[in-house]
């Protein structure tokens, strides 16, 4: 029943100072769609809440001259979804982000929040990883950049140090012959947590042969997985049935899930292979249409 301090800094430096200076548990507030739920459920008891939405850098979604994007860590899903450029270039990232919650949640849900909440089942995370996104981190020692897959350390845990937070993300320019996709399995059609999530990004050459690929699985291990064997299984192939079976097997082999109320080990593992195949087909299809 201790009182909570609420702060709304306007600069990155101010935010870092607040985070660093807090002696109790300090928490970043972006959209709040995880944070407020956890507060209400008495799962967390922060001393300071630092709302980063008044820091301009966290709210901007910019297409850079080289075709890459800088996405503010607190940009809401609905804002990105309305942008024709990013939606056309990276449909997989956008569809993963868009799967988070309902229309109301979309008005708030950010990539920074989805990643730093560090649920193994966060929907946007495998898509971000597959797309090769990196996070721009600000902290007491200045700025650093980490690949998205290096941010989470385990359920509810990140590798961010005291005083650090994510300001924005870099999303590479879309390769001319590239495509990406994300699929998740939930028992319902909405408002559920992924039993398995899978993101893929790949490029094809003229002949339709896969020249590069990155495949990522969510909800099948403590943190998001990059499945290198799955990528290897399809690079140099035209996604013939044998390649697809090898991909399926590689995805299954990478899984290290838990048995819980949301799915058994056996089920999650099997579905990881199925989604791997489906996601790669969609991504290849998108790449082929360029």
């Amino acid at each position: 029943m201790e009182s909570i301090q609420f702060r709304k800094p306007e600069t990155v430096d101010e935010a870092v100072k607040l985070l660093q200076g807090a002696d109790g548990d300090a928490r970043i507030l972006a959209g709040g769609t995880d944070l407020l739920v956890q507060l209400r459920a008495h799962m967390i008891d922060p001393g300071v809440i630092v709302d980063i939405k008044s820091i301009a850098e966290t709210r901007e979604l910019t297409k850079n001259d080289d075709g890459s994007y800088t996405i503010g860590a607190a940009v809401a899903g609905a804002e990105a979804h309305e942008r024709d450029d990013i939606t056309a270039d990276w449909p997989g990232v956008i569809e993963a982000w868009d799967l988070i919650g309902s229309t109301q949640i979309q008005g708030r849900a950010s990539l920074g929040g989805n990643l730093c909440n560090a649920s193994p089942a966060g929907d946007s995370v495998p898509a971000m990883v597959a797309a090769g996104m990196t996070a721009n981190i600000a902290g007491p020692d200045g700025r650093r950049t980490l690949p998205v897959e290096k941010i989470t350390a385990g359920p509810g845990k990140t590798n961010l140090k005291k005083g650090e937070f994510i300001v924005s993300f870099n999303l590479p320019a879309k390769p001319s012959n590239g495509g990406d996709a994300y699929l998740r399995l939930i028992p319902r059609t909405e408002m559920d947590i992924a039993v398995v999530g899978c993101g893929a990004a790949l490029t094809l050459d003229e002949s339709g042969t896969v020249t590069s690929a990155k495949i990522s699985l969510g909800a099948v291990a403590a943190t998001v997985l990059v499945v290198e064997d799955a990528a290897k299984a399809i690079i140099g192939t035209k996604l013939e049935p044998e390649a697809m079976s090898a991909l399926d097997a590689a995805c299954q082999a990478a899984c290290n899930p838990i048995d819980d109320k949301r799915g058994t080990v056996e089920y999650r593992t099997k579905v990881a292979g199925v989604l791997g195949r489906r996601v790669v087909s969609i991504a290849a299809n998108r790449a082929g249409k360029n």
Binding site: P187, R188, T189, E190, M191, D192, I193, K261, R262
Partner: peptide, 16 residues
């Protein structure tokens, strides 16, 4: 009881 909430006690949602 391991699922005392609407997240894991899955009644159909409208889109189902």
């Amino acid at each position: 009881l391991d699922n005392p909430g609407f997240l894991d006690y899955r009644i159909p949602v409208a889109s189902d």
